[in-house]
């Protein structure tokens, strides 16, 4: 059973056991427009919740991605390096950014569930 949480900065995290898969929401990918480049974090580096871990660039904007949870990066989506448009096409599945080993599950309480997030973006 996976749980999915959202941040106010439009990231999602799918939690599976001690690991979390992170990406951006459909809403965010639409707002950004055509994504042209993604700068992903290095494997093995640790981040605190809310710290900027990655950058997503469209033609006219660069947006920071803030980590939804604290932990160590254990995998990144290398297919995005060559084909960043995957995020536009499929932000929730194929367009995931990185996988993180969550060190403090309590933190997830700071995040929103789907219903709360939908309310935030006015769906």
């Amino acid at each position: 059973m996976t749980d999915i949480y959202y941040t106010k900065d439009h990231e999602w995290i799918k939690v599976d056991g001690g690991e979390g898969l992170v990406g951006i929401t459909s809403y965010a990918s639409e707002q950004l427009g055509d994504i042209v480049f993604v700068e992903l974090p290095q494997k093995g580096i640790s981040f605190d919740q809310g710290k900027d871990v990655a950058v997503i660039e469209s033609v006219k904007a660069a947006s920071e991605i803030y980590s939804p949870a604290s932990g160590e990066i254990i995998e990144t989506n290398s297919s995005l390096e060559e084909n960043p448009e995957i995020i536009n096409d499929d932000p929730l599945v194929a367009g995931w950014l990185y996988k993180i080993k969550i060190i403090n599950k309590e933190e997830l309480k700071n995040l929103m569930n789907e219903e709360e997030y939908n309310k935030l973006i006015g769906v």
Partner: peptide
């Protein structure tokens, strides 16, 4: 590659 530049990234 304008996103590297000051008019978009400002302080970054």
């Amino acid at each position: 590659l304008a996103t590297r530049e000051q008019h978009i990234r400002r302080e970054k």
